[in-house]
Design a protein around this nucleic acid. Structure first.
Lengths: 241, 241
DNA sequence: CGACACCTTGAAGAGGTTCAAGAAATGTGG
DNA sequence: CCACATTTCTTGAACCTCTTCAAGGTGTCG
């Protein structure tokens, strides 16, 4: 186990506070919440924070780095179920059966706050805002997945990739990054798995966007030139119509 | 509002107890939990229990009947995100933004137990088993949706329909119905929407299964003749190979 | 009984996949 | 720091699955 206990964790000083914690707490409640994070843990690029079948103990708040979650079946199917970045919570899948049902793999060197779930439940019982926050986080994940189902169930390749790019850049922007430039931390194959497409289709669709002057792509570096065009594509209309 | 307050609700006598409530409670805890269900509500076939945009107040435990949940976008997309039957909980999507983000429509006359979410949170703070049960229900929904993403992202039409049938019949069996016979409460179009297929493809795939002697289909009445063949199809192998 | 919703089936076509080859980037060990 | 191996990405061509469009059949409900 690659667990690094660093100096005293302080959520109240964490600049991701708004992303992963309830707002508007009283000072004494804040103190209690600090107790949730047991330790921080570093995860090297390519290695798993947790894996399918592993005993569930904790949720993880991502401090730095970028993850994918994916499920693999015996018959060789593999599906990326999400990409997670700083301030997002992973591990919720493990609650229901006390074991994780997916793998969480770091796509770049990462650090997470380990939050033992028993402690979360304990503090949720004391602090209403915390309880509601936990419920909201889980509900948000359910709603996010509804969106993915809509994408997988009803969109064509261009629409899927456009929606994917808009979603990524919007989340990055909320974290202070550019609205128009991003670096993909995942391969074309991983994008394809998430979007229900083959990597060749992802590549071709990128090329089409470049031809149409909607984006610039240099390997994993993407610059969005025409956000509106992407939105029109997602909304099932032809750009420039 | 079509709300019917019936005589005193009694979860402890409800035969769906094991499906929608935590197990192993002390008698005094059971009494508290009875307080959760405010009223029961009947929903006519074709009408909505709740709709997108509606204020979120309660979760609903299905007592009888069958629902679909679906999301619709302005540009005319429509995606069935799930089918729910007796003992299952719906409404979790509404927690995060205090408003529902999907429609829950009864596919046959139904009755639900209305559980005001504030009361659920209140009792969850007092009874650990209840708290954990709520967490499990939400986690289960997340895991279920992972499975749908796998289906939509990586399966072909036959595999999707086979997985769908096996899932339905398994849930019905857990409720005391047949392992091999079922009545579909939804149209081909609704099945198609859920599975990311057109209704014609659903119909054709049913016909293929009939030709292969795997199922009998008479409109919405389905009899599964060869469960193993369906499992082989889902596992990406040719039946009889 | 007639109207309407739902289901089935055929034929043509589109979108995405598969297979293949080569180019570009990245990592590794000497 | 360079050469080589490996991974990742791009592009073309043939193919296949699912969709689209169309027509007709079946079942249901007022």
């Amino acid at each position: 186990m690659n667990i690094h206990q660093s100096f005293k964790v302080a959520c109240s000083n964490c600049n991701l506070r708004e992303l992963c914690m309830p707002m508007g707490l009283k000072p004494e409640e804040l103190d209690r919440i600090e107790e949730i994070v047991a330790v921080r843990r570093k995860v090297k690029r390519g290695s798993a924070l947790f894996s399918n079948g592993e005993k569930f103990t904790s949720l993880y708040a991502i401090r730095t780095g970028f993850f994918k979650t994916c499920i693999a079946t015996e018959d060789g199917r593999d599906q990326v179920t999400g990409f997670q970045m700083a301030g997002e919570i992973i591990g919720l899948d493990g609650i229901v059966n006390d074991h994780h049902t997916c793998d969480a793999v770091a796509l770049e060197d990462a650090e997470v706050c380990v939050m033992p779930f028993e402690r979360i439940e304990e503090i949720s019982r004391e602090i209403n805002a915390m309880q509601h926050h936990v419920h909201k986080i889980m509900s948000r994940e359910i709603v996010r997945e509804h969106g993915v189902m809509l994408l997988l169930g009803s969109m064509r390749a261009e629409e899927r990739l456009a929606a994917f790019l808009l979603n990524l850049v919007q989340r990055l922007h909320a974290r202070g990054f550019s609205q128009s430039e991003l670096i993909l931390r995942m391969t074309r194959e991983e994008i394809g798995s998430y979007l229900g497409l083959k990597l060749e289709t992802v590549s071709r669709t990128f090329s089409k966007f470049v031809e149409d002057g909607i984006v610039e792509v240099k390997q994993r570096h993407v610059r969005i030139l025409d956000t509106e065009a992407l939105k029109l594509i997602v909304n099932n209309q032809q750009p420039c119509q």
